[in-house]
């Protein structure tokens, strides 16, 4: 494989990465080749020592999704990063998939519950329309307002909880990039 082929392969494997970032990445490798040539190295030898462009691309993609997840608090990116890391051979993450799915479903159901509670006052209005007594309506309104309050608190709590969880999980993924830490955790 020659220089141009290496660069072409690297580019083609950098899927889902914005064009600007792709160019930044490729320019690092172009510079690498330039310096190597300057030192009198040959194209073939340089390509061989650079390593597999597919593996390099995967690593860059994993980092990209992680960064996305961090910036946008996007669960999709978090999943993508986790899976790309798995592809890189970070097999300890397999054990994290179960807990990750459970926590994400808990977060999701908490959001749904708080949303339902928030709209309960609407049902009280429905009671008024159904020709029930004023007392009954007020009673309903009162309980539903309490419900909405609880829903609001729950919603705020969930936002907080999911933020904390997000930060924690991203830190965990990042710590995987530095296994020395993992090795001597108990020390």
């Amino acid at each position: 494989m020659m220089k141009d082929e290496f660069l072409k392969k690297l580019r083609s494997h950098l899927v889902k990465i914005p064009e600007k970032e792709k160019q930044e990445i490729l320019s690092d490798y172009v510079e690498h080749f330039q310096h190597g040539f300057h030192k009198g190295r040959t194209e073939e030898e340089m390509v061989r020592t650079l390593g597999d462009p597919r593996k390099i691309a995967r690593e860059l993609i994993a980092d990209y999704h992680l960064e996305r997840a961090q910036e946008n608090q996007s669960f999709v990116s978090l999943f993508r990063a986790t899976f790309t890391f798995l592809g890189l051979g970070f097999f300890n993450l397999v054990f994290m998939l179960g807990p990750l799915i459970i926590v994400l479903s808990v977060i999701f159901s908490m959001y749904v519950t708080s949303l339902i509670l928030l709209i309960t006052p609407l049902f009280a209005i429905e009671a008024l329309l159904m020709e029930s007594s004023l007392l009954e309506f007020l009673l309903r309104l009162l309980t539903s307002l309490i419900g909405a309050g609880v829903g609001l608190l729950l919603g705020m709590g969930t936002v907080r909880f999911s933020r904390t969880f997000f930060g924690w999980f991203i830190r965990y993924l990042k710590s995987n990039l530095n296994i020395i830490k993992g090795v001597n955790k108990h020390a």
Binding site: E24, D28, Y29, H32, H35, G51, K55, E59, L60, D63
Partner: peptide, 26 residues
């Protein structure tokens, strides 16, 4: 600079030189 770093490290032990750049980027 990037090439200098790659050069220094690969003098000491065998690496896929292309893996240094993603690390620098991160």
């Amino acid at each position: 600079y990037g090439y200098e770093l790659v050069d220094h490290i690969s003098e000491k032990f065998l690496i896929a030189e292309g893996t240094i750049y993603p690390i620098l980027r991160r």
